[in-house]
Design a binder for these strands. Structure first.
Lengths: 269, 269
DNA sequence: TCACAAACGATCAATATCGATCATATTGCA
DNA sequence: TGCAATATGATCGATATTGATCGTTTGTGA
């Protein structure tokens, strides 16, 4: 990864939340601590961010902390490393110029960091995703119309005749609350509604779920496994669950987790 | 492949993505590193791009123009006091719970400051207005769907069947580039398109223009004076111009500047 | 206060990129 | 065709960036 690209990613991340750690940036950019420190130092003298012990913080007022309360940013730190690794693999599936749809959610939001250097038409129903992409990338951003729901952070119209129907993409990316033999499960009826509007606007459905989601259950089923083209998850997935996807004809991508295991292996004997 | 062709490809690539690597260009043009370096060096001295280690980046203003941070930086400070006073009067027309439509623009943007304590359904096609209302007010915010145009800061769909048609309000607020005997004038065709979609969704059209706009002319006419219900402007308006509005049956509200803002605006006709 | 761990800065080797040079290929023109 | 001019590709030493490893500093909690 090149210097400019890292800088963009770091700045992108530092806007999303007020303070980022060196470790997070290491995971995000897949480079060493030393490099990240040098980057932060360089960006600091450029006054593009402020260097603090442990990482960096935004030079300007928060600007980006979730919209309404906190449902977004609370969830944000939960399994952040996994979500980022998963998001990275998801973005790797995309080719420049290829239109994609990104459904709102905390996992899919992580995709924005890896989309900063890309240039593609992106349709989303997530206000924060649209906002971040607008401010930190050159992608063409399209947003669904309707009421902005603060808690879910999505834009949803009660009508069927909105602009959503006029957008088509090869791939749609979405998260979920659970994934089991019966298919994709969601917790919030509002999200189901939003997802159902988008799900038919793309050929391939790519589902981003950390491995804990295979053990989650919910009462609302969005669609069956057969509708899913690809699942991106982390290495916490169990053989039985992988088998389930395989028999359903779902492609599986396991995102490698970058850090967090070094402590274990470096023994003290 | 000819030199000109490579240059064209490189420039095209660097416009699409913020930064391109030498390697990418080698693959794209099927030529050697040395050639690409020479090309980049040549384009660099021509100031068509900026050379950086590992590749090249777009010459355009370092990073993010458009909305980033401050919505409309240049226009923002221009006549800010007047615009604020005008926006205050415009918001004073609204009753809590009454739905309104706010068209994007620098003057209408000022309305957000006076809407922070209100609670009403607000429909807008302006991304910054929606963003600000979301973060700093409890109003119900509805946004039109479509592509987000960075320069104009509006969301516009090329289709007629978007959610805009499903929203109705008593009043619509909009700015303009000029206001003369022939009616409301706008400079940007894109804005005309956006405004035409909204203009029929409200009974009363309220136009917010500082008094300098009475002397501005433009080539694109949005609608005649008769379509306008109310004009809000500042005390720089001349008698002749007020007369013009009166004979057209347009209500006029003159906003006083901040200094004596305890006084109510003088309503004339 | 002390011990400990995390974060830091400096250094060095490995790697990637660059710039210069020369050999080769292509083009333009007589 | 033959020749000169230019463009291109390859090579190699010079330079810059990166990642790892030190010892040191800073923050934390007992």
């Amino acid at each position: 990864m090149h210097e400019k690209e890292r800088h963009r990613i770091i700045l992108s991340a530092v806007q999303e939340k007020p303070v980022v750690t060196v470790q997070e940036m290491v995971e995000l950019t897949d480079s060493s601590e030393a490099t990240i420190r040098r980057d932060i130092a360089a960006l600091h003298v450029q006054k593009r961010l402020r260097r603090v012990r442990g990482g960096a913080e935004a030079i300007s007022p928060p600007q980006f902390i979730g919209l309404a309360g906190r449902p977004f940013s609370v969830n944000e730190t939960l399994n952040a490393a996994q979500k980022r690794a998963i998001a990275r693999e998801a973005v790797n599936l995309c080719a420049d110029g290829e239109p994609i749809i990104i459904n709102g959610g905390t996992t899919t939001f992580q995709m924005v960091h890896f989309l900063t250097g890309r240039r593609m038409p992106i349709f989303t129903n997530s206000f924060p995703i649209a906002e971040h992409l607008l401010k930190h990338s050159k992608n063409t951003v399209m947003l669904s119309g309707g009421t902005i729901y603060r808690e879910q952070n999505i834009v949803l119209s009660p009508f069927d005749n909105d602009v959503t129907r006029n957008f088509y993409a090869r791939r749609m990316f979405m998260g979920a609350q659970g994934l089991g033999p019966l298919g994709l499960m969601e917790g919030d009826p509002l999200l189901i509604q939003a997802e159902q509007k988008l799900i038919d606007q793309a050929d391939e459905l790519v589902v981003l779920v950390d491995s804990s989601k295979f053990r989650m259950r919910s009462s609302l089923i969005l669609c069956g496994l057969s509708r899913i083209a690809t699942v991106v998850t982390d290495d916490g997935i169990e053989d039985r669950e992988a088998k389930m996807l395989e028999t359903a004809g779902v492609a599986l991508i396991v995102a490698r987790r970058q850090s967090s295991d070094k402590e274990e292996s470096s023994l003290q004997a």
